[in-house]
Each structure stands twice: as C-alpha cells, then as structure tokens.
Amino acid sequence: MNENLRNSINQLSESEAKSILLQTMLRLKKIPESNESQRQMIKDLHVWWNLKFAQSSKKCTEMEYKTVHIVCGESTTGSLKFGLEHGNKVIGFPDFFAAGPIWKLHEEEGRTHRYEWLRDHLNIEDDFIEKEYQKRFSKTLAELEAIPDHVPIVLWTGENAGEQTGIRYLLYMLKEKPNDAFLINTTLAYQELYNTNEIQYFCFHTGEVHPEKLNDIYQKNLPEALTLEERSRFEKEWITLSNTKGVVRILEDHIIKEVGEDYFDELLITAAQNLHKQKGKDFIRTGRLIGEVLGQIDGMVGDSFLEYRVRCLINQGVFEIKGILKAMRYYRVKLRE
C-alpha cells in the first residue's frame, strides 16, 4: 500500500500536488469550524483520499467506471471528483477558454499558437504555462481518445463563455466517438433544483457548486443524450469559433461573442478611481484592484488575464507602478494624475 501510494504521488504534476495539498488543508481547517461531527468530516476526508489515490494506485480498466465526465478547469475537476460516487471517471481539461486565442485549436498549429500566446502574455503561478501546460493538454486529449466506445460521456458547462466554448471544442474533438453524450448546464440545473421564491442564486460556473450538489444534479437532472443533429450543431459552432483571431470571449444572451482584449480596461480604471476615493491617492495593491473587478464580472475571465491588462495600462501610461512586474503580488499601481 505504501509503495503504491508513493508511486501515485511521484506521478503527480507540481500543480496537481499543490491542488491536493490545498484541498486537504481546507478540509482539515473545516473540522473545528463546521457543525458536522468530526467523525463525519474525517469520513469525508477518507472518501476524498480514496478518490484521489486508492483508485489511481492501480491501472484503470474499462470495468472500473461506468460513466466519463468531462469538465473545464482544475478546481471544477476537483469538486466533481469529490462529489460523484464510485464508478464515475472525471477528465478535467486544464484550460479555461474565455481568454487566449482558440484559432485552429483542434489542430497542432492552433494548440502551439495558444500556448505561445499564454506563455508570452500571462503571469501564472509556479510557471504552469512553461512547465506543464502543453504536457497536460496533450495528456487530456489522449484521455479523450482512450474513452471506450460503450461508455456514456457527460459534459458539464455553465452560463459563461469559458465553459460554453470548451464544450464546443470538446464535442468537436469527440466527433468520431459513437458514445452517448449528455450535456449538463449547471447554471440552469441549479436554478431548477434549488432556487425558491425566497432564495435565488445564480451560479455562473460549475466550480461554484458544492460537490454534493453536483452529484445531486447528476442524479436528478441528467437530460436526454444529445442527438446527432445537436452534436453536429455544436461541432459547426466550434469551427466558426476556431476561425476567429481574437483573445477574449463573453457570453451575451446565451451567445458566445468575441470582444476586444481591452474589453475590461474601463472596469479596471473605474475600480482604481473608486479605491482612490476610499483610500486616497496611495498606490493600490494590484491583487486588490483585480479582486474588485473579478467581483463585478463573475469570473468572466481569470485574474491572470486581468493582471495582463493592468500591465498593458501601465505601458499605455494610465497607471504608475511601484515594484516589479514579476507577478501581481510584487507591485502596486495608481492612476496617473
């Protein structure tokens, strides 16, 4: 057992290891804070450990899972793995498609183009782009190809441009697969199952939903399999998207729209103006500024893209800087007078 566990840990990438450590510490931190019994919390930790390591310590055969779930984003992948019951395999796509080029992403040329843009423009912790992005992307594509033809596939999405773009890309990459494919829109399913006249909650992203509720949604709100016509429509929509050259997408009236990469600049400037009114004309922590904007846009893009736009505004002379542009925690900004 110890040897198998050691081998499983050695096979983890750096980002996977840090993600597991973070999730473990968060669950341990909740034990004294939660109303649940410590016994139940420890039991939940053991279940999570079993999902992470006990199953990964042996080679997964076709008989070990009955359904494959595919989702975009690492944190969402972790939530889904924790929430779903045994017999469900989760494939997490290590990308979020609201920002960055998607031109010809279904071809090697397009994947290289996206990698180079992300590498040259975004500051992501732990050098993820340089060290792991291409490897993880290729590994996930190989996992999709290896799905047995008889296993049903469930794709998860939400009312945001990243996940909506992602499912169109994924369905295109699965176009030769004869498997039944199901599509769960977490935003709509959550509203149907949990919203009441007194309580209304709009979750834009699958990752916002508690793991237990993700399992509940899967058990109670799984739609009919996509028809061939529906799959063909998604595939054609992907081809249209993949011919675009822009780097930012938003979801407007359920339609994916390409916008200029300066789309969020005015929000950054307005947020800085408001913080100056509250705090005076002192330099503002870049993370604080970006956090203010993230709260307004409900995660339409990530913090790394907004940090890139802050750097662009610095280069344009909109912001003054104090510190070094190594990462957002290393510098502060203020509006030029």
Rank of each mutant, 00 (worst) to 15 (best):
E109K: 15
S56P: 06
K66S: 14
K89C: 12
P101I: 00
D95E: 12
D120N: 15
A54R: 06
E64Y: 11
R111I: 04
A98D: 00
H113G: 00
K59F: 10
E64G: 01
E130M: 02
P152W: 12
R114F: 02
E62Q: 14
R136A: 06
D126G: 07
Q134I: 15
R119H: 12
P148G: 04
G87D: 11
F93P: 01
N123F: 03
Q134A: 10
A98Q: 00
L80C: 11
Y115S: 07
T61F: 03
M63G: 01
L141S: 07
C72M: 12
T112I: 13
S57P: 02
F128D: 05
Y115I: 05
G87M: 11
K131L: 10
H86I: 13
V151P: 01
L144G: 09
G73A: 03
H121M: 01
R114H: 04
G87S: 13
K104F: 08
S138W: 02
V90T: 04
E125G: 08
E107H: 05
K135G: 06
S75Y: 04
E132H: 09
S75V: 13
S79T: 03
Y115V: 01
Y65K: 03
E85M: 12
Q55S: 11
K89D: 10
K135A: 08
W103N: 01
D120H: 06
H86W: 11
L141W: 06
F82M: 06
E145C: 05
A99F: 01
E109I: 06
E125M: 08
T140G: 02
E108T: 06
T76E: 11
K66A: 07
C72A: 15
L80P: 03
V151T: 15
A99L: 01
C72F: 07
F128S: 02
Q55V: 09
P148T: 04
F82N: 12
H69W: 02
G83L: 06
K89E: 11
I124M: 02
C72K: 06
T140N: 03
E116K: 15
G100D: 00
A99G: 06
E62W: 03
F97E: 01
R136K: 14
T67S: 07
D127S: 13
H69Y: 05
H121T: 03
K139D: 13
Q55K: 14
T61Q: 15
V154K: 03
V68Y: 03
